[in-house]
Every structure is written in C-alpha cells, then in structure tokens.
Amino acid sequence: MCRIRVEFSKGEAVRFLSHLDLLKAFERAVRRAGIPIAFSEGFNPHPRISFASALAVGVTSEKEYADIELKRDADLRDVTGRLSQAMPPGIEIKSVGAVPGDARALMAEVNRAAYRVTAPVDGLMDETELGKKIAAFMSSPEIIITKRTKKGPRLKNIRPGIICFEGRLTGEQVEFSLMTVTGNDGNVRPEEVVSSFTEHSGLPIDSDSLDIRRTALCIEKAGRLISPMDISRAAR
C-alpha cells in the first residue's frame, strides 16, 4: 500500500461544485484512469481519497490537495499522466508526489489558507484611504461577526484567525489578498473577513458579489509556511 499526494487546481468551469461533488468527480476520474486505488474495509467499501480542506461552492482555487491510497506502488509519472487525462475540464493536476507511510493526514496538517477576493466598488474610494482603513481594521483587538447556526445566531471573534489582509484598487474593483486559519486552528472564511471589513470601514464595497479564489493552502510550522507538496519537510 502506498499513498500519493496530488496538487490540483479548481477552475472556473467547476467552481460551483460542492465538496461532495468534487470528491465524486475525483473518485470517477481515478476509476477512469485505471489507477489501483485502495478501498476502505467493511460492508460499504469506499475509495480511499482525502482532501486537505473543503472548498465552498463558487470558490475557485489555484492549489488544492488530495491524498489517494493505492493498492500497490505505481509509477508517479504514469499516474500523473493518466489522472490529468481523466479529470473533467476545469480540474488540472499540477503535480503528484509520494507520501511516506508515517506522514500525518493532510487534513490534520493544513492550517493556513490564502485567498484573493475581488469585489465591485460602487462609489468613490482611493487607495490611501483603503490602506488606512485596512490598518485600522487589523489593529482592532477583536472583530466580532454573527454566525447563523442551526442553534441560532452565534458570535465569533475572527480577528485571531486573520493572519494578513491587504487590498488595492484595480479599476472599478477592489482586490484583497488575505491569509486566514483553517483546519485544526479554526476556520475563518474570506467572505467573513471582507464583509466585516466593509461594514467596519464604511467603504462602498459590494460585498454581496465577491469573486473568491484560493491561492494557497499551506502548513504553518514554527513560524514557517510549508507547501503540502514539500512532503518530506511537512512530515517532519
């Protein structure tokens, strides 16, 4: 048995796939590609694929990760080629690497997500003002949002989960770059950051029409950011 790690992108064509849809698309592509995937034990065997982090419906991503367990060793170049060919348009395989047997699960490791968010601006705004507002926003000790849950509204402080947050104007739009925590360190969603910023700053940003792209998922370890594909370092 061996495990491989796949880095892939989720493009415009498949942006509206849910996490479950994406999982199904992967399972089927793996079967079409004829890759010897391993199955879970038990009455209802499932193909062994696990993703680093769920991506919300409507969000595209430059870098996503999945671990696939195989029944037997396979040539990585061959697997890469076959998977690439079998993927539906919109999912692109970037690279494939072997994962050492003792490596922890992807989901347990990945704890940082970076995003680029663009939003239409309906009004006047200049870059200096934007910069000042962002600095003010980031210097708040806490940023409270109201989350709607099944048990009713719940308050949540998202400030500790925002690692960095920058913005610039591009024509009629504002483009934010941000990094937030994900996985075991909690989860702050990019739209939560942008809409609370909009509210906080009073700037004329249409936070109802966000275009969100995940630009990276990584592992923060002792102050350093490591790519999940840097498996030997990530595993240490």
Binding site: A13, F16, D21, R28, G58, P88, P89, G90, S209
Partner: peptide, 18 residues
C-alpha cells in the same frame, strides 16, 4: 457571475459535465 452564485445548486445550469 450574477445569477449562479445566488441560486441553489448552480451546477444544474452549467452544462459542462463530462
């Protein structure tokens, strides 16, 4: 850009399945 992000199950309307 304007409609699919606002409706339930947008993949119903995309037509680019395998």
């Amino acid at each position: 850009k304007k409609i699919l992000p606002k409706v339930q199950k947008p993949v119903r309307y995309q037509g680019n399945e395998l």
